[in-house]
Computed example of a mutant assay.
Amino acid sequence: MSGFVVTGTDTEIGKTVFAAALAGALGASYWKPVQAGLDDGSDAARVAALAGLPPERVLPEAYRLATPCSPHRAAEIDGVEIDPARLALPQVRPLVVEGAGGALVPLTRTLLHADMFARWRLPVVLVARTGLGTINHSLLSIEALRARGVAIHGVAFVGEPVEDSEATIAAIGGVRRLGRLPRLDPLTPETLAVAFAAQFDLADFA
């Protein structure tokens, strides 16, 4: 296993929490190439805390943008031009890379996250919520990734169990259902590690 890209079907669905759990379970380094929005802290800091990663395993972002919106627009507001050359994968393995938002979120006016995933050539874990609307969002994301030749490692669900929706996405999308991470209260490094170990098979990420 050299690494995974973690992307989502939407924003605020638990993608960062899943990325933290995966990085911690694999003993991997974590990298979020573009952080858009800093008022609530960075995702890298949150992952470091939840995964218990030492500082050297949390790689610095290529871009830290102040405005919490799509990276292409946040960069424009900040007067920054995102250079795809700066988004080359760090030569660190194993590595968990987290995208911003969903697969088709723009990095620039001409470059989507999914386009970058295709260049990186790492398998993608698609994080999907279990609530209403997830079948459509998930299948659209799967089609968009496949259209660009991106390898989909599987789908990780977040939320309360909804067996039919999860099974339907896996069957119609032709993807592996990796497991489901429940919403945790409290969310701590300990509760996250226990939940991931109970709901996911680490061998699926080998």
Rank of each mutant, 00 (worst) to 15 (best):
S2H: 11
G3W: 02
V6S: 05
T11C: 09
T11V: 14
I13C: 01
K15R: 11
T16D: 01
V17Q: 11
F18D: 00
F18Q: 00
A19H: 11
A19K: 03
A21L: 07
L22M: 10
L26V: 05
G27K: 09
S29N: 04
S29A: 15
Y30I: 09
L38C: 14
D40G: 14
G41A: 10
G41I: 08
D43P: 11
R46W: 08
R46D: 09
A48G: 15
A48W: 10
A48E: 15
A49T: 15
A51I: 10
L53M: 12
E56H: 15
P60I: 06
A62E: 05
R64D: 02
A66K: 15
A66P: 03
T67P: 00
P68W: 05
C69P: 03
C69H: 02
H72K: 11
R73C: 04
A75L: 11
E76C: 02
D78Y: 11
D83Q: 12
P84T: 13
R86V: 06
R86H: 12
L89T: 07
P90R: 10
Q91C: 03
Q91V: 03
Q91T: 06
Q91A: 14
Q91D: 14
R93C: 12
L95E: 01
L95T: 02
V96N: 02
E98W: 04
G99I: 04
G99T: 06
A100I: 05
A100Q: 05
G101E: 04
G101P: 06
V105L: 10
V105Q: 07
V105G: 02
P106I: 05
R109C: 04
L111D: 10
H113V: 03
A114S: 14
A114M: 00
M116R: 15
M116T: 07
F117T: 07
A118G: 14
R119L: 14
R121T: 05
R121Q: 12
L122H: 03
P123Y: 13
V125A: 07
V125Y: 02
V125P: 02
L126N: 07
A128P: 03
R129E: 08
G131S: 15
G131F: 04
G131Q: 11
L132I: 13
G133E: 11
G133F: 12
I135A: 06
I135F: 07
I135R: 04
S138N: 01
L139S: 05
L140P: 00
R146P: 06
V150P: 01
V150G: 01
V155D: 00
A156M: 09
A156L: 08
F157E: 02
G159L: 07
G159C: 08
E163W: 07
E163M: 08
D164W: 13
T168A: 15
I169H: 05
A170S: 12
A171Y: 05
I172K: 07
I172F: 08
G174Q: 01
L178G: 00
L178Q: 01
G179A: 12
R180A: 05
R180P: 03
R180M: 09
P182Y: 02
R183P: 01
L184I: 14
D185P: 01
P189R: 13
P189H: 13
E190R: 15
T191D: 06
L192F: 09
L192M: 09
L192G: 01
V194A: 12
A195Y: 03
A198T: 04
A198D: 09
A203T: 14
D204C: 13
F205V: 06
F205N: 01
F205T: 03
A206G: 15
